[in-house]
């Protein structure tokens, strides 16, 4: 049988979940971690999808919306459980396990909170192997499963159940999340453990537990490999950030130009749509979605978010290889460059 994620393990999981996580709001991350600590009790059982009874109903849990909003408007505390209960009512069946949609920072912890609140195991794995911005961008969807029915619970007691074709979930979800105040907890992708075993990116929770152990190398958090694209200095940030008196209208998408500090001294352009989706070195594509591209601060070793990038900052640009399923044609269509609006 599986292992138990207790308070100690929780610390490792949270550390591991931040190694390559982008868009982390410190405030949201800390409150989620405090919240998880407060509910974890004696621990949450971690099982593989294959270990669970194949007929067990598994529900995916994810935070949707803005972590800035979560940090500002605190959760009431019952959101994960409320979302799952709503889905259970719709399905007429109890969930026997929860699984993460992705494992970046808060999103690694919210499923854990749900499992603790519901008293069910957490499946060792997730639906991306990395983070994508859309609920539909999962290996679950690639495996033919629908995110709907989906239950969304908000911090002010709101609850919305979406029942719609899978490809319309995001479209309907987004305005709902905004009307909630910017964030919500979703329970979605209801499926059996048997189905989950087929579509999950397996073992990623264990992986983060190992990666979060003191002294573990950064690469331990990348199940399919990671490489350094370049080390350099941010030369310019175009589009999103203005500095000084001559302020450019910030807008997304944005673009970050990094000059390689040594070696070839290439000009590396990072094209970002909330996250970095394309890296060009001297105009040649060298990395792109579905692989994950992130900037790691040379000084602090933390991931630098796109909206925190500033000229002069020294960064290491790393590319985390996505799960193989993302490199299939269907994976590319769902999570590749075109999914981010770049017509390549």
């Amino acid at each position: 049988m599986g292992r138990v994620i207790d308070r100690d393990e929780l610390g490792r999981l949270s550390a591991g979940s931040r190694v390559f996580a982008i868009g982390t709001e410190e405030s949201a991350y800390r409150l989620t971690l405090d919240w998880a600590h407060s509910v974890i009790g004696s621990g949450v059982e971690l099982v593989t999808a294959g270990e669970a009874d194949p007929g067990t109903l598994c529900v995916s849990i994810t935070l949707v919306g803005s972590t800035t909003a979560l940090g500002e408007q605190l959760p009431a505390g019952d959101e994960p459980a409320r979302a799952v209960r709503a889905l259970e009512r719709r399905l007429g069946e109890r969930a026997g396990a929860v699984v993460a949609l992705n494992l970046a920072a808060e999103n690694a912890l919210v499923p854990l909170i749900a499992a603790a609140q519901l008293g069910v195991p957490l499946i060792d794995g997730d639906g991306t192997g990395r983070v994508f911005p859309l609920v539909e961008q999962t290996t679950y969807a690639l495996g033919g499963l629908s995110p709907a029915p989906l239950a969304l619970a908000g911090g002010s007691g709101e609850l919305v159940l979406l029942e719609t074709p899978g490809d319309r979930v995001e479209e309907l979800l987004r305005p709902v999340v905004l009307s909630f105040g910017g964030w919500g907890v979703a329970a979605c992708y209801p499926m059996t453990a048997g189905e989950l075993a087929r579509v999950v990116v397996p073992g990623t929770v264990s992986l983060l537990l190992r990666a979060g152990a003191p002294g573990a190398p950064r690469s331990a958090a990348a199940p399919y490999g990671v490489r350094t694209l370049c080390r350099g200095r941010i030369l310019a940030v175009e589009g999103s950030t203005g500095h000084g008196a001559d302020l450019a209208l910030p807008s997304l998408p944005s673009s970050i130009v990094v000059q390689e500090s040594a070696g070839l001294r290439r000009l590396v352009r990072l094209e970002a749509h909330n996250e970095i989706v394309l890296a060009l070195a001297d105009g040649a594509p060298v990395a792109m979605a579905p692989d994950q591209i992130c900037m790691i601060s040379t000084e602090g070793g933390m991931v630098v978010d796109v909206d925190k990038a500033e000229p002069g900052l020294e960064v290491e640009v790393m590319v985390v290889r996505a799960a193989p399923v993302w490199h299939t044609d269907r994976g590319q269509a769902l999570g590749g460059l075109r999914a981010f609006g770049l017509p390549l």
């Binding site: 905004l178 910030p250 909330n274």
Partner: peptide, 8 residues
């Protein structure tokens, strides 16, 4: 300094 907020 001006930064847009993501996902809002």
């Amino acid at each position: 300094t001006v930064n847009p907020l993501s996902y809002l």
